[in-house]
């Protein structure tokens, strides 16, 4: 899922062409992912300051006791202005947290910013803890976590238990992104069972569901000619599908997908196998955003329509984008999450 790299690269750049110093398109001075990917989870759940960008990205599809659907997002981004960590205020590591709760009618969003080096935000691998301010994703290990976040109009407090193993994308976690050879380290935990309380303006709601956590880091951005992406994570009857579509300036797309069986076995699909096409658009914050899609992976006989639980799932953050829960119908049924960026 390293398409999300764009998000972080866009984050500082979006308001001005200059962007953060040192965050141009080159990765000078930063480490780059190498093949074969070898992970040591005593450290690799933690931060990699010598890589430019990294995240701990969790989305969840939830239901309350009445069957009402909800979506939830907890994300911690790290971006490095220089490939090092320093103590105190002079740390070049910038942390950004995004939290959101989506209901069929409302979408609550909030954002936090912090500098590394002073303890306001960070990640430790063992025991695992990722935090910014009072937001937290932590547990004795990666399989058993508690998660908290709060904003001016909402909060949540959740417990997560992993029901399966970690899943590695691309070549055992080395995920190639383009013909130019740009790549990232990318693995997921798509098998969390999640339960907890959403605090909303109308009161507390007890919810259960499943969550999907992505871990990814790299230093190289995507090509200049890519204008945005549409990323899908689907939890279907017989397995899970991660697929994305990179939109390029000439109207063509670069796609990639991973099929995950219920046992956690993965199959990676090259460019072109995964296909996604918009069916219907919604007017969101003055933009036309596709909130219904046809998604196909012919090799697996998947031909489904997905639609947004709440078409107005707009992330009004420093870098605005669309992220929200979706419902899947067609050859397969299920739920999932959709992220769309670059719709200006």
């Amino acid at each position: 899922m390293n398409v999300r790299a764009l998000l972080l690269l866009l984050w500082p750049c979006v308001a001005s062409a200059q962007g953060f110093a040192g965050l141009g398109t080159s990765s000078e001075g930063f480490a780059t992912p190498e093949r074969p990917a070898v992970f040591d989870f005593r450290v690799d759940h933690g931060p990699h300051p010598d890589y430019r960008i990294e995240w701990w990205y969790l989305t969840a599809n939830l239901q309350d006791d009445d069957g009402t659907r909800f979506g939830l997002q907890w994300t911690l981004f790290r971006t490095a202005l220089a490939p090092e960590e320093r103590e105190g205020w002079s740390s070049p590591q910038i942390w950004m947290g995004h939290a959101a709760v989506t209901t069929p009618t409302d979408h609550y969003v909030t954002e936090r910013l912090a500098r590394g080096g002073i303890g306001q935000a960070g990640v430790t691998a063992q025991p695992f803890e990722a935090w910014i301010d009072d937001w937290q994703l932590a547990g004795p290990d990666f399989n058993e976590l508690t998660m908290k976040a709060s904003g001016p109009d909402f909060a949540y407090d959740m417990d997560l238990i992993a029901l399966g193993d970690l899943v590695f994308h691309g070549d055992a976690g080395y995920s190639v992104k383009s013909a130019d050879g740009q790549a990232s380290y990318y693995y997921s935990q798509p098998f969390y069972a999640i339960e907890g309380t959403l605090t909303l303006p109308d009161g507390d709601v007890h919810v259960t569901g499943n969550a999907w956590l992505d871990r990814e880091w790299s230093s190289q951005p995507l090509s200049d000619n890519q204008t945005g992406w549409d990323w899908f994570s689907l939890s279907l009857d017989d397995g899970k599908l991660m697929g994305f579509r990179l939109r390029q300036e000439d109207g063509s797309h670069y796609t990639s997908a991973t099929w995950i069986t219920l046992d956690g076995e993965t199959t990676a699909y090259p460019d072109g196998a995964f296909q996604a096409a918009p069916i219907a658009f919604s007017d969101v914050e003055g933009r036309q955003i596709p909130t219904q899609w046809n998604v196909r992976l012919d090799a697996r006989g998947i031909d489904v329509d997905v639609y947004a639980l709440n078409p107005q799932s707009w992330m009004d953050t420093s870098v605005p984008y669309w992220e929200g829960p979706i419902i899947v119908e067609g050859s397969h049924t299920g739920v999932g999450y959709l992220e769309m960026t670059g719709y200006e």
């Binding site: 500082p12 750049c13 979006v14 308001a15 001005s16 062409a17 200059q18 962007g19 953060f20 110093a21 040192g22 202005l81 220089a82 320093r86 205020w89 002079s90 740390s91 070049p92 910038i94 910013l113 912090a114 500098r115 420093s318």
Partner: peptide, 26 residues
């Protein structure tokens, strides 16, 4: 001041105006 957390309008440069460089921070 801390440009990442200060209420908007206080600092000459903020997190969202693109002028926040490593020079400013460090």
């Amino acid at each position: 001041l801390d440009p990442l957390t200060s209420p908007s309008g206080l600092t000459p440069t903020g997190a969202d105006d693109g002028n926040l460089t490593i020079d400013v921070l460090a």
